[in-house]
C-alpha cells in the first residue's frame, strides 16, 4: 500500500509538473464550457438534458474520453523504459501491481478533474436559479470517471507494450475509437450473434443506460471495473515480462 501511494503521488505530481496536463485542462474546460452553452440552447434550456450531453450523450464527451487518457498514459511506462528509469523502479521495493495501480490511479484522478467541469456547470445552473437533478449529475460524473478509468487502463496497457510513447498513444487512440464506434458497426451487421456479442462489450451503451440517467447498477459498474482490471492485469504481466527481456 505504501508503495502504491508513493507511486501515485509521484505520478500525479509528474502530471501536474508538466505542461501537458495544464494544456489539456485548459482545452477541456474551455471546450466543455462553450459546448454546455450550445447544449442549453439546443435543448431549449432543459438543464438535465444539457448535463446529460456534457456527461456522455455528445460526441465531444467521447472525443475527450478517447483522446486524453492515451496522452496521459503514453509516457508512463514506455518513456520510463526508454530512458532507463523503469529499471530503477522495478528494482525498488514496490510490487509491479503497485507500480501499475499507482500510475493508473494518477491518470484516472486527472480525468476525474477533467469531468468536474460538468459539476461546475451544474453549480452555475443552480446559481442561475434552476436546481438540476443532482443524482443524475453525480451518476453521470461517476460513469465518466469509470469510462476514463477503462481508457486509462488500455492506455497503460499499450504503454507497457512499447518503448515509444507515440506508438503507445496511437495504438490506444485507435483502440478507443474502435470501442466508441463499435455500436455503429454493430448496427451494420445482420448477424444476431455479432450484435449480441457487441452489445455485451458496448462501453457507450453501458455508460448511457445507467450512470448517465442517474442509476448506479452493480452490473454496469462491474462491467467497467472488470474490464479495467483486465487491462491492468495485462499491463502488470507485460511489465513483469520486461524483467526477463
Amino acid at each position: 500500500m505504501r508503495g502504491f501511494l508513493a507511486i501515485y503521488r509521484r505520478e500525479l505530481g509528474g502530471i501536474f509538473m508538466g505542461p501537458l496536463a495544464w494544456t489539456l485542462l485548459v482545452i477541456a474546460y474551455a471546450l466543455q464550457g462553450l459546448l454546455f452553452l450550445v447544449y442549453l440552447k439546443t435543448s431549449q434550456g432543459d438543464v438535465d438534458l444539457a448535463l446529460r450531453f456534457a456527461f456522455g450523450e455528445s460526441w465531444a464527451f467521447w472525443a475527450l474520453a478517447a483522446l486524453f487518457p492515451p496522452l496521459l498514459t503514453m509516457r508512463m511506462i514506455s518513456e520510463e523504459s526508454r530512458m532507463g528509469l523503469l529499471e530503477y523502479l522495478l528494482t525498488a521495493p514496490v510490487t509491479d501491481v503497485a507500480v501499475v495501480l499507482g500510475k493508473f490511479c494518477a491518470a484516472t484522478t486527472f480525468m476525474a478533474l477533467v469531468w468536474s467541469a460538468g459539476l461546475l456547470h451544474a453549480l452555475l445552473v443552480m446559481r442561475a436559479g434552476v436546481t438540476p437533478d443532482w443524482g443524475a449529475v453525480w451518476g453521470g460524473w461517476l460513469g465518466a470517471v469509470l469510462v476514463s478509468g477503462l481508457f486509462c487502463a488500455t492506455g497503460l496497457c499499450a504503454s507497457s507494450f512499447t518503448n515509444t510513447p507515440v506508438v503507445a498513444a496511437f495504438g490506444s487512440i485507435v483502440a478507443h475509437l474502435l470501442i466508441v464506434i463499435l455500436p455503429l458497426l454493430g448496427a451494420l451487421t445482420e448477424s444476431e450473434w455479432i450484435r449480441a456479442a457487441i452489445a455485451r462489450v458496448d462501453v457507450v451503451d453501458h455508460h448511457k443506460a445507467s450512470f448517465l440517467v442517474g442509476v448506479v447498477d452493480s452490473a454496469y459498474a462491474g462491467f467497467f471495473l472488470v474490464w479495467t482490471a483486465l487491462f491492468l492485469f495485462v499491463a502488470t504481466r507485460s511489465l513483469e515480462a520486461r524483467r526477463w527481456r
Partner: peptide
C-alpha cells in the same frame, strides 16, 4: 460480467431526484 448481470448479485440505486 455475466455473473454480475444475474439477479442474485445485482443491485441498483436510482439516484435521480
Amino acid at each position: 460480467t455475466r455473473i454480475l448481470e444475474s439477479r442474485l448479485v445485482r443491485a441498483r440505486w436510482d439516484l435521480s431526484t
